[in-house]
């Protein structure tokens, strides 16, 4: 399988504090990886580096053949190919759900309004909130908002989807509806990098699981090996805490 994301000795500092320490990671096309770890371990920062919402200071990040540097054109190109879903949904509150979804296709991809709306309806159908299209984000439940946010990202027809703790801000009964959409997406063959604590989701869809602690990748294994015989002590401790 072809490499689609490649991180080579990536380092990042917030002031004096090193958040990412010598990260090496390769993701193949259509692969699904789950990144977990205690809070503050740098996992969100890591996936935010992949579409350069955060800037890394040392090392190379190559996404879909493009090396990320200060070149704005490249960054915008990468961002229109990489979709992202956030913990806090980050829908645009002044626009309806439909407009949230059509905005970037119209303004970034220069699609016609009609095409963009057709596309949006198709993806809103897929996440099962097409009946809410005319509503504003504030009128939707958390789970519906997160599904709308996934649809918004999909409307750019990305090759890669990044999920930054997509269910952490949701009430328990809404987590499933969002995870169902993500499982569905995974089965459709999307390349996915998911930061999450939902180990059930990891077991079901992930090809590989990565465990991070204090800015480093501590353990990286195919899913069944990761859960069945983790080697690192910190991984074992984390798993015993989160699985029980």
């Amino acid at each position: 399988m072809s490499k689609i994301i490649e991180l080579k000795s990536v380092n990042k500092w917030f002031g004096d504090f090193q958040v990412l320490k010598d990260i090496n990671l390769t993701v193949s096309s259509k692969e699904k990886i789950v990144i977990c770890g205690p809070s503050g371990s740098g996992k969100s920062t890591l996936i935010r580096c992949i579409n350069r919402l955060e800037e890394h200071q040392k090392g190379d990040i190559v996404v879909d053949g493009i090396t990320l540097d200060a070149n704005t054109k490249n960054i915008e190109k990468i961002r229109s190919e990489v979709g992202m879903v956030f913990q806090q949904f980050n829908l645009f509150p002044h626009l309806s759900i439909l407009d949230n979804c059509t905005l970037a296709p119209i303004w970034v991809k220069k699609k016609s309004k009609k095409d963009a709306e057709e596309l949006a309806n198709q993806y809103l159908e897929k996440v099962q909130i097409v009946d809410q299209a005319k509503k504003f984000p504030g009128q939707l439940s958390g789970g519906q908002q997160q599904r709308a946010a996934i649809a918004r990202a999909l409307c750019m027809e990305p090759n890669i989807m990044l999920f930054d703790e997509p269910t952490s801000a949701l009430d328990p009964e809404m987590i499933k509806e969002v995870l169902d959409v993500m499982v569905d997406l995974a089965k459709g063959g999307m390349t996915m990098c998911v930061v999450t604590h939902e180990m059930g989701f990891a077991k079901e869809v992930a090809d590989r699981v990565i465990f991070m602690d204090e800015g480093s990748i501590v353990e990286e294994k195919p899913t069944d090996q990761f859960f069945n015989n983790p080697e690192n002590e910190r991984t074992k401790l984390f798993l015993s805490q989160i699985l029980n």
């Binding site: 990489v82 992202m84 956030f86 829908l91 645009f92 970037a104 303004w107």
Partner: peptide, 21 residues
């Protein structure tokens, strides 16, 4: 909130588009 800038950037909008829209 910062998240609005993140979301706008993540769908490929540059400085002017994200500010104007």
């Amino acid at each position: 909130p910062r998240g609005q800038y993140d979301a706008a950037n993540s769908i490929g909008m540059g400085y002017w588009k994200s500010h104007l829209l």
